[in-house]
Structure formats: C-alpha cells, structure tokens
C-alpha cells in the first residue's frame, strides 16, 4: 500500500513537471505552428535567474518569479525577432524552426556553460520538507509545482480565450491575412505570443530546477518529453496535454518502480508510439482535413 502511495506521489510530482512544460509548448504550437526545441533554454534561464537572485545576490525569494518572468519574456521577444520571424513565411517553417531552435538551445547551453560553469547547482527556490501521509512523504515542492502548474494553465487559458490579446493571438494563428486587414500588426501579435510562452516557460523552469538540480543543459530532456506528451494529447490541446502529462508521469514512475529506474522513459515512449499508431492525431486531437 505504501509503495502504491509512493508511486502516486512521485508520479504526480513528475507529471506536474511535465505539465508545466507542456503549457508553453502547446501554446506556441497552437498559435504559431511552432515546436520550440529551445524551450529547455527558457527552463534553464528561469532556474539560473532564481540562482542568481537568491544565491549570488542574496535577495529574497519574492523577486524570483517576477525576475524569471521578465527574463523569459525578454528571451521570447529576442527569439522571435532574431530567429522566428525570418523563417515564418516559409513552406517548411515547421521543420526549419525545429532545426533552428535546436541550434538556439545549444547556443544558450554553451553560453550558460561558459558563464556559470558546468557543475550542477542546488537551486534555492524550493521548499524542503513535506506532508506526512502514513509512512510516505508528500514533498511541499510537489504541492507547489502542481499548484503553480494549475494556476499557470488557468492564467494562460484565461488570456487566450478572454482577453483582447488572446483573441488577437488566436485570430492571427487562424487567419493571418484577415488579421492584417482588421488592422492587427501580425508581427507584434506573434512576438506577444512568444513572450507569453517564454515567461511561462521560465517560471516553470524555476519550479522544475527547484525540485531537481540546476545545470546548463537542464531543460532538454524535459522539452523532448513534454513535446512527446503534447503530440500524444493532440498538439495545441492545452487541457489534454496537462491531463496526459499526469497520466504519463504516473506510468513512467510505475515502470521505474517495477522494472528499474532506467526503463521509465523507454517504456513511456513505447506506449506513446503504440498509441500514436492507433491514433495518429493524438488522443484528443482533431482530425484535420488537408487541402491540396
């Protein structure tokens, strides 16, 4: 029984980390048709901001999230204007941007490596201790991560569905020409979407690195896993992605407990591949009709 509970707790923690990752990724896919392989860079930037703020500057934890948000938004703005906008019009954008963002991820990782050093650091924005449930402990950091994941999701969903900025971002993603003809500056709308995604990703980075460790390449694995989760949920489907993040997090942890640590991700990926062979558009994805 305790093992069962332990699996659920670890699974939820892992799921929460995946979930915060999927929010920014499916936002960008849903609005711009862009898979952001540099998502991990934002995670790392968020983590290093927290480290710099608290450990280096000795400032209070209160400043960490606003700082990470600002850094992430700046990163999103730069990524759009330096890279994305130059290839957006291309027919092959969806693949070109994967190659380009892999390069961006490597660039940022290399930069952090040179500035902050290769060694793993403890990121101070974390709560120690946990809630005792019988013999197992539910870490406060997990509760915090789950809570922030849900809050971020609610905020992002609110912005996208209810605010003017969100309506504009959706309009631009659905019909660029018509948006221009309504007086929308398409480039600034995309820049806004990327800033939103960047800010969310950096905040998620603070939480993810708080639960694990901080090193220059920290986000890359999480990015790939989160993208796989987005694909299986049906890309662009935010609620589905979050749900699948928890399901697959639980599955991965269960496999780890039963068969051994190293088989978690392989088993999860195999499950995803089988599911995708059965449902190529994802579990909650829409069947889209391609026009020739």
């Amino acid at each position: 029984m305790d093992i069962f509970l332990q699996i659920i707790i670890s699974g939820v923690s892992l799921g929460a980390m995946y979930a915060v990752g999927t929010i920014a990724l499916s936002l960008l896919w849903g609005t711009m048709g862009m898979m952001n392989l540099a998502h991990g860079s934002f995670i790392a930037i968020g983590g290093y901001m927290a480290y710099w703020c608290m450990t280096v500057m000795g400032a209070s934890w209160i400043f960490v999230l606003p700082l990470a948000l600002a850094a992430g938004m700046l990163g999103g703005y730069l990524l759009y204007h330096l890279v994305v906008r130059w290839m957006f019009e291309r027919k092959e954008f969806s693949v070109d941007i994967i190659i380009a963002t892999v390069a961006v991820a490597a660039l940022v990782e290399n930069g952090l490596l040179n500035v902050a050093g290769p060694e793993a650091k403890r990121q101070p924005f974390s709560i120690s201790g946990g809630l005792k449930l019988g013999d197992v402990v539910l870490p406060y950091q997990t509760i915090l991560t789950v809570a922030v994941a849900i809050i971020l999701m609610v905020i992002v969903l609110y912005i996208v569905t209810r605010t003017k900025m969100g309506i504009v971002i959706r309009a631009v993603s659905q019909q660029q020409v018509a948006s221009q003809l309504m007086g929308v500056n398409v480039m600034s709308a995309f820049a806004q979407a990327m800033m939103l995604a960047g800010g969310v990703a950096a905040i998620s980075g603070v939480l993810v690195t708080g639960a694990t460790q901080l090193f220059p390449g920290v986000g890359f694995d999480t990015t790939i896993k989160a993208l796989v989760i987005c694909i299986i949920a049906g890309l662009g489907n935010l609620r589905g992605a979050i749900f699948m993040a928890f399901v697959l997090g639980l599955f991965e942890v269960a496999v780890q407990y039963i068969f051994g640590q190293q088989y978690g991700f392989p088993a999860m990926l195999s499950l995803v591949i089988v599911l995708l062979i059965l449902r190529p558009h994802g579990l909650f994805g829409k069947e889209t009709v391609e026009r020739v």
């Binding site: 969806s94 693949v95 994967i98 993208l227 796989v228 995708l276």
Partner: peptide
C-alpha cells in the same frame, strides 16, 4: 505521423 511530429519522435 508526418512532418515535425516525426522529428520529435525520432529525436525521442
């Protein structure tokens, strides 16, 4: 799968 989906799955 097709397009970018394949890129992500093969990378994984």
């Amino acid at each position: 799968l097709r397009g970018p989906y394949i890129a992500i799955m093969t990378l994984a």
